[in-house]
Amino acid sequence: MNNLYPLFNLIIALTAAPLMSGVINRVKAFFAGRKGPPLLQLYFDIGKLLRKGAVYSRTTGVFFRLAPPAGLVFILTALLFIPCGAYPAVLFFPGDMVLVVYLLGAQRFCMLLAALDTGSSFEGMGASRDAHFSVFSEAVLFLCLAAMSVASGSVSLNGMLFTAGGRIWQVSPPVLLVVVFVLYIVLLVENYRVPFDDPNTHLELTMIHEAMALDHGGPDIAMFEYAAALKFWILASLPAGLLFPYGMKPDFFGNSALFLGVIALTAALTGALESCAARLRLVKVPQMLTAAAALSVVALIFLAK
């Protein structure tokens, strides 16, 4: 039974990930003085989209069709390596964090090519911006992973979060908080949230992520949305895993509930942040990420001391 727990956690991640978009939107609605969409809106959306047909552009070819399922598969595979609170990941091996980051990169590869496949200037614009910012965000993510690796003495995600089980905080709590902060920035930029992108915008010229999905429809867009939700879950799991209250030693269901709670808190925080900050100018995004990189380097040096 114990061996099956990670699988159960995986199922929880797969089912609960779209909930986070609902949490974010509800928090934003609260700040705006509105009621907001239902918490389960994304489930409804995905359900509706899956029941639709599709319209394809005549310009597009294989990549356009391939990208949504392939991207989803990459994300799903990455999810296997994410530990869930006080329970390990489904799979782990030394260096799995490198694979996880590169799987996210592979998903990006598919999305960018699918965007260019349409021959639309808007999709090209989104792709260009995404390619631009990912250069920085991935490097920052690697620096954070290096810092976590140093602090936990482990070279796998499972070791950093699950095996270390909170011992990681014994080294230097304030410095690790910096790492958590930087991970949160990575979460925002990789999930195209404010202040890096505006998930609510309807203006093609300002989009990044949405621009790349402009020509997709039906089940494809459902896969896009679901992959985005899972990606949020994956990247939120890193700071959430660090902040997880391991000391409580919860049972299986308690653990799942706690982990879900921590991730929902991350989502709520995102919603709150989106309610009180404007979006950055595009040219300032790399500057912001460079600052994050500098922070993580400082953290790394302190942790290794």
Partner: peptide
Amino acid sequence: SGDVAYLP
């Protein structure tokens, strides 16, 4: 302010 994603 909506165009700069400033919600309030």
